[in-house]
Nucleic acid binder design. Structure first.
Length: 582
RNA sequence: UGGGGCUUCGCCAAGCUGGUUAAGGCACUGGAUUUUGAUUCCAGCAUACCCAGGUUCGAAUCCUGGAGCCCCAGCCA
């Protein structure tokens, strides 16, 4: 593949400048995350940059995470760096091993590799604790014994400064004693909290003595019951980055206000000789907003719990497990991330962009097959009853090397109901009485009419075929036709379950204007049908993706398919300029 | 006068150390190829950069003022 020049963005500009200034030249790396002391005698850190994807294992990854994953891992790849996968597991009440596993799977599925750099914030608890003691000793932290309510009240408001806690000037020795006893489990949850001592009058509320440690008796998925004291994200995250030698700590915009604290903390710790310089820098970018879907964790949970979808991996869910079942591809997501870019302006990406990226990749890679989704019988009146023959269909029109496969042809076929009409609208060039059309990879046929039941519903379409026009023979092009429709032989095709998925919501911005987003669900987001498929499809392997010609891209469902009877999910339709016009 | 951030084509988004015809992609519109109304190809698509002033020979880029939108008052992340 040709060398692509990556689109410039503000993060790449920062990295370019850092690299040009040789900012990271002095860093050491002991092979494992650790404080300054540990890295001190080690060799230089070879990767040019270190980024990280730091999910909290408290839910399933969604499309928004895909943007962040592609960004962090992609940057590492481009700059000969590495990207760590780090679980930010500082709140035992919300986190579970199940989520850790699913996150590992999802990032792997997207095609990224963290090598040996799989880490857990919870493995740094000892260091974090020591650093907290240092902060206390250096007069930068204190134990506050106010209740949560009192703390909230004294924090002030957006426009009024906060007031100092009565415990703010506790002597160092007392703070240290209290903090150690907090760790030892002498106090009830919520009795005390450790706070950074910064500025209660700051315009930035995050600097009004943020809480950095709370007492919480909960079993942690990784550390078990070792701790009853857990660090807050605010405190933990910068330290995690520093211990891991992260050069660029990329996060979303809502953490922008947190950056002054991030820098304050790391600077204090570095001054105390605890952390190696240069310190990591936090860079914020705009999170993904996608139309026709919701990405907030709360809403996703609601969809699952209220059973509006069939679980977290429902193909309609904007989760990565859902996308996988849907038939979306990792390459499609990476293309998407590349296409939407990264910037600081809040933006809304239309779902059609993601769909287009999936089509792009699927078009290149998916083999073609024939499926009649809404079958109606087509009878070829002048074709002998007992005859049958094999037609050949290429597996991919742009890739002849993928070979061909035989498709049985006979007197009675299934065609799409919408490929025939008695009263063609202007511009319609499929089947209607008197019109000729090609049966793809077969013969040209001339439509004679149709038969109906008593109610007037069309039962079968009748036609005659032109024997000399068989595809692949010299006479194939002797009759020019505009229309080209697909078909399967009724005698040889088989009925199979196919799920037609569509967008989960019927409006661009579900729940906008204060309405209930549930009311905006698309009632037709899932249709289960029985389709007539060409014989070759029986052999489809779970997760194998195909283009059903003239329909779209489908995947053999990875959970419901059984050997010999795959169930197909529609990932996305083909672009349809005829439907768009009419 | 609480703090922080953002504003370039319908949607993203380069550019921001002042001088380019204001990149590129998607969408859209033409046209060519095509046994998928698909794909591919080729062409078109901002005298205009939130607004108003100013500096300058010259401003999307610098200055001043204004408008709009987003985020922050968890012992969540």
């Amino acid at each position: 593949m040709a060398e692509e020049t990556k689109a410039s963005n503000f993060i790449r500009n920062i990295i370019d400048a850092d690299l040009a200034a040789n900012k990271f030249a002095g860093r050491r790396w002991s092979g494992q995350p650790g404080p300054a002391e540990q890295h001190k005698v080690s060799p230089g850190d070879t990767p040019k940059i270190r980024t990280r994807f730091p999910p909290e294992p408290n839910g399933y990854l969604h499309y928004g995470h895909a943007k962040s994953i592609c960004l962090n891992f992609g940057l590492a790849l481009d700059y000969e760096g590495v990207c760590h996968l780090r679980f930010d597991d500082t709140n035992p009440e919300k986190e579970e091993q199940e989520y850790v596993d699913s996150i590992v799977d999802a990032v792997k599925w997207l095609g990224f590799d963290w090598g040996p750099n799989l880490y857990y914030a919870s493995n740094y608890f000892d260091w974090m604790y020591q650093f907290a003691e240092y902060l206390i000793e250096s007069g930068n932290a204190y134990v506050d014994s106010q209740s949560a309510d009192e703390m909230r009240a004294s924090r002030g408001t957006l426009t009024e400064a906060g007031k100092a806690s009565p415990y703010r000037n506790r002597p160092v020795a007392e703070n240290l004693d209290l903090f150690r006893r907090m760790k030892a489990g002498e106090f009830a949850d919520g009795a005390h909290v450790l706070r950074a001592k910064i500025d209660m009058t700051s315009g930035n509320i995050n600097l009004r003595d943020p809480a950095i440690y709370r007492i919480k008796r909960a079993t942690h998925h990784n550390t078990g019951d070792k701790w009853c004291l857990y660090p807050m994200y605010t405190y933990a995250h910068p330290i995690e980055d520093a211990l891991e030698n992260i050069t660029h700590s990329i996060c979303t915009l809502e953490f922008e206000d947190q950056r002054p604290f991030y820098d304050w903390l790391l600077e204090k710790l570095a001054q105390g000789g605890l952390l190696q310089r240069p310190l990591p820098q936090q860079i914020e970018f705009a999170r993904l907003n996608l139309s026709y879907v919701v990405l907030s964790k709360r809403k996703l949970i609601q969809l699952v719990e209220e059973k509006h979808v069939d679980g977290w991996d429902d193909p309609r869910m904007p989760t990565l497990v859902g996308a996988r079942r849907r038939g979306f591809t990792p390459e499609g997501f990476r293309r998407f991330a590349e296409m939407i870019g990264v910037a600081k302006a809040d933006s809304w990406i239309d779902m059609s962009i993601l769909e287009a990226c999936m089509r792009d990749h699927l078009n290149e890679t998916a083999e073609r097959r024939i499926a009649v989704l809404d079958p109606i019988k087509l009878v070829i009146d002048n074709y002998p009853e007992e005859d049958e023959e094999l037609c050949e269909a290429p597996n991919h029109p742009q890739h002849p090397e993928l070979g061909k496969r035989p498709i049985p042809f006979s007197k009675e076929l299934w065609i799409e109901r919408e490929d025939f009409t008695e009263n063609p609208p202007k511009g319609y060039f499929r089947l209607f009485p008197g019109n000729t059309v090609r049966l793809r990879y077969g013969y040209v046929i001339k439509c004679e009419g149709c038969t109906k039941d008593e109610a007037g519903n069309i039962k079968s379409v009748h036609c005659i075929y032109l024997p000399a026009t068989r595809s692949g023979t010299p006479g194939a092009d002797s009759v020019k036709v505009k229309g080209n429709i697909h078909w399967v032989s009724a005698k040889h095709s088989y009925a199979a379950e196919v799920r037609l998925y569509d967008r989960l919501f019927k409006v661009e911005n579900p729940g906008s204007g204060g309405s209930d987003f549930i009311a905006d669900l698309n009632p037709d987001s899932k249709r289960v049908i029985t389709a007539q498929l060409e014989p070759a499809l029986r052999d489809a392997l779970a997760e194998e993706r195909f283009q059903f010609e003239r329909h779209g891209y489908f995947v053999a469902d990875r959970v419901d398919s059984k050997p010999g009877t795959p169930v197909f999910n529609r990932a996305v339709t083909l672009k349809d300029s005829w439907a768009a016009k009419s």
